[in-house]
């Protein structure tokens, strides 16, 4: 029995349907590959001495982690793709990943969550707005862009309204006190569009389950701008 477990800190990441990207920071490069795997390249050294010394390659369901040290531990200069795996690769399951890799896994997970929160899963064009339900479900973020310039963002933590004039309000959950008539209309419409997106998501997901092939029906776009 482990007193600490990775699952107490983070859920297995999910990178299904996310588009490829490669993003570097000071000491690492995190990528979503076209296979939907997530790759972390850890860098050591600076300038011409900079090398990719360690690679974590995480399956798109987050459960399988391949770890290797390129060029027999000497590393390779940073390239535009991760160095390929040598023969001696350590393969771990999410449940038995050694603690020294947890922080790196959590970092990859945080990045994936950020991308999911910005990736539309359901896009609905209504009479007044484009409503997007994002991939970070359950309780996914919602972004409603009104054709007149207004905007609403809903997350589990806050609701932000931007009126067409540019004036904005942020509410930390709970009641929406002191809203003017214009903002009330925006919120009401956003709420309805959000509900419709959730219903569409559930209907499409049910159809998707009936199919044997693992072919995703998402993202979906419903309607068009009037």
């Amino acid at each position: 029995y482990q007193m600490n477990a990775l699952c107490d800190k983070v859920s297995p990441l999910r990178a299904h349907r996310l588009k490829p990207i490669r993003q570097r920071t000071k000491n690492a490069v995190v990528s979503i590959l076209d296979t939907e795997e997530v790759c972390m390249e850890l860098l050591k050294g600076s300038g011409a001495q900079e090398r990719v010394k360690e690679v974590l390659r995480i399956s798109c369901d987050g459960y399988t982690i391949h770890i290797y040290h390129p060029n027999e531990g000497r590393g390779f200069p940073l390239d535009d793709r991760p160095p390929s795996a040598p023969e001696d690769v350590y393969v771990y399951h999410f449940d038995n990943l050694p603690e020294k890799f947890w922080k790196k896994y959590q970092y990859a997970s945080k990045f994936v969550h950020l991308v999911r929160s910005k990736t539309p899963k359901v896009t609905l064009y209504t009479k007044y707005a484009k409503c997007m339900l994002m991939e970070n479900g359950p309780k996914a973020d919602v972004e409603v862009l009104f054709y007149d310039g207004g905007k609403i963002n809903k997350t589990t933590e806050f609701l932000r309204i931007v009126e067409k004039s540019g004036k904005s309000y942020t509410f930390d959950g709970g009641k929406l006190n002191g809203l003017n008539e214009e903002a009330k209309i925006y919120v009401e419409h956003a709420h309805k569009a959000h509900q419709t997106c959730l219903e569409l998501e559930s209907t499409i997901a049910a159809q998707e389950k009936r199919k044997e092939k693992q072919l995703s029906f998402f993202p979906i776009i419903i309607g068009r701008r009037p």
Partner: peptide
């Protein structure tokens, strides 16, 4: 291991996010 997730935000990431959104009201 100096992994700072805040560093991830930059212009390149913003333009990637914009590409994810279906056209019409970007």
């Amino acid at each position: 291991d100096d992994l700072d997730a805040e560093e991830l935000y930059d212009d390149r990431l913003e333009s990637y996010f914009k590409q994810l959104v279906p056209p019409g009201m970007q």
